[in-house]
């Protein structure tokens, strides 16, 4: 799109302003990460930088291990969520189902999103203990599948509905089976949707605290948000360690956003727009 010069100036100012406002708090994180605890609480603007927080975060608190756990849990869940979501989205969007059935499934999925997560925390704890996956990333993967599948199905359902019917008809004319249509036609066309749903699923799993804390107990499965909560103690809030953790916690998501850009941009609902 092209716009007149004045409008372009306005647009550019809006964007630059947005960038500045978004980045200021992030600058504060880096600043805090480099401050000694006593400098953080004295509130001055000047300080001498220190590596104290970075050393203790990765040394004493084994933050590296937590990052690995987070990565395994979030990406494991995301892969399964995408598989389940793509299949369900394909089935619900391409085939004809009774209206009540589709509505029932979509309503159930929305309901899962609306319930306070604590509702699932107790039952999942018992299930993971019984199945013997408690305190392993598998327990977290199980929980994140349940929590993140709804949004993924909602997104991918819309996407599969936007796939032109003629394409699918043509494939069937050529004698293609449904599963071939799914893998060779629908999946490639749904790539933007997969990217958006995958990013959201990854980020929300990555940032979850409630399940991470009830399904893990040691560094064997503990994830970053629990580690961060360990820094917010009763007698002292270890702001510096939290800042270091936050800075490093953002890296995987940041890389994903960078790489997923070209897919994500095609976005959530070309279906919705075309309807």
């Amino acid at each position: 799109m092209k716009a007149p010069r004045l409008d372009r100036l306005v647009i550019f100012s809006i964007l630059v302003f947005g960038v500045v406002v978004t980045l200021i708090p992030i600058v504060v994180v880096f600043r805090t990460a480099l401050q000694l605890p006593r400098d953080i609480i004295s509130g001055g603007l000047l300080f001498s930088p220190s590596l104290h927080n970075i050393q203790s975060t990765f040394g004493t608190y084994r933050f590296g291990r937590l990052m690995v756990n987070s990565l395994v849990s979030a990406s494991g869940a995301t892969v399964i969520v995408l598989a389940v979501g793509a299949l369900a989205g394909f089935s619900l969007g391409i085939f004809t189902w009774p209206r009540w059935w589709t509505a029932l499934i979509l309503a159930t999925l929305l309901m899962i999103q609306m319930l306070p997560p604590v509702v699932f925390a107790g039952p999942f704890y018992l299930i993971s203990r019984q199945v013997g996956i408690y305190n392993t990333p598998l327990a977290l993967i199980m929980a994140y599948i349940v929590l993140q599948t709804p949004l993924a199905v909602l997104i991918l359902h819309r996407f599969s509905r936007s796939i032109p019917g003629e394409l699918i008809e043509a494939a069937h004319m050529d004698g293609a089976r449904h599963h071939v249509v799914f893998t060779h036609i629908c999946l490639p066309l749904m790539t933007p949707g997969l990217a958006t749903a995958g990013l959201l699923s990854f980020v929300f799993s990555w940032n979850d605290f409630m399940f991470a804390v009830s399904l893990s107990s040691t560094t064997r499965a503990m994830t970053i948000p629990v580690g961060i909560a360990n820094f917010a103690q009763d007698f002292q809030i270890l702001y510096g360690n939290i800042a270091v953790a936050a800075a490093f916690a953002a890296i995987p998501g940041f890389l994903m956003v960078l790489f997923a850009q070209r897919y994500v941009t095609r976005g959530l609902t070309m279906g919705a727009v075309k309807e």
Binding site: V28, A232, V257, Q261, T265
Partner: peptide
């Protein structure tokens, strides 16, 4: 622009709390 505007969502909520407390 896109990367920057998506960025805040990537941070753990509890870290966002601390970050704004520092501000």
């Amino acid at each position: 622009f896109r990367t920057v505007f998506i960025f805040p969502m990537l941070l753990p909520p509890i870290a966002i709390g601390v970050m704004w407390l520092m501000i």
